[in-house]
Amino acid sequence: MTVFVIRRFLQSIAVLCVTAIIVFIGIYAIGDPAEMLIAPDASQAERAQVVASLGLDKPLWEQFFTFAWNALHGDLGRSFVFNRPSISLIFERLPATLELTLVGLFIAIIIGIPLGLLSGLKPNTATDEVIMTGSIFGFSLPSFWQGMMLIMIFSVWLGWLPSTGRGQMGEFLGIHSSLFTLDGLKHLILPAINLSLFKLSLVIRLTRTGVRETLPLDFVKFARAKGLSENRIVFVHVFKNILIPLITVIGLELGSMLAFAVVTETIFAWPGIGKLLIDSIMRLDRPVVVAYLLVIVSLFIFINFVVDVLYSLVDPRVRLGDAS
């Protein structure tokens, strides 16, 4: 276990370094942020002064090493645009995105697993057909269109739910979140559903496939021959086996939901991190983009680590010491 953690930690550092280099060079190649930041009517002297103050006059490698040195000391640079530490900009916005993502994932799991079990246990029935057809829609209709339809139906026609913003936030145990007020919850429902629909379909299909694959196995028949109740067979014998692929995919998807909540955040004007990223890329605000990606990569790494630990809990055949 210790060996596993240390090895994983070293791998993570390498991944972070490579990410930082690629993003740094990538943004540098796109364009000169000075062009975006400096007013067109600024004089040559003002121009030179701004460029020098941002360190943009130095060669790329020097800029990178300055950044890397500061990063090692916990400073990921200041936003060119806002003139504030980029990391604090990100952490201001991250909770909103986390909230949206986790609620979306929760919806996908809470609804997806029961529906998947239902259609896996009763294949080729009307229930199964309805669930499967529904999941095809969830898969194939583009997210932005689903978002707009949700707004049209629930906000415009029915007027039940607000369509934009994060609403009022409540505080509980020192955590600020829209989960704790009714108004906040109302604002959260539509974007969370929008974000979860695709994952919901995925969870349904994974669960259904898992059930279909596990049910004919000998150990299920043996469990029946032992005289176990059908509930015990489904919820212990079958379910514990399909948890393994589910955890893998849900872990990976959580990362991608966080990173790509952009579309949903844009549609519902959700003040999350995705919008910040898009704005920063448009303005070539390199420190924010780099810091954002490093944070997201770290989150990915963390999630994968949690998935590996969960694995070893669910599947006794996996031992963390052997994993590489």
Partner: peptide, 11 residues
Amino acid sequence: FQDPMMTLNPV
């Protein structure tokens, strides 16, 4: 059953 590798639940 026939195959002892398959009759016990692995998890």
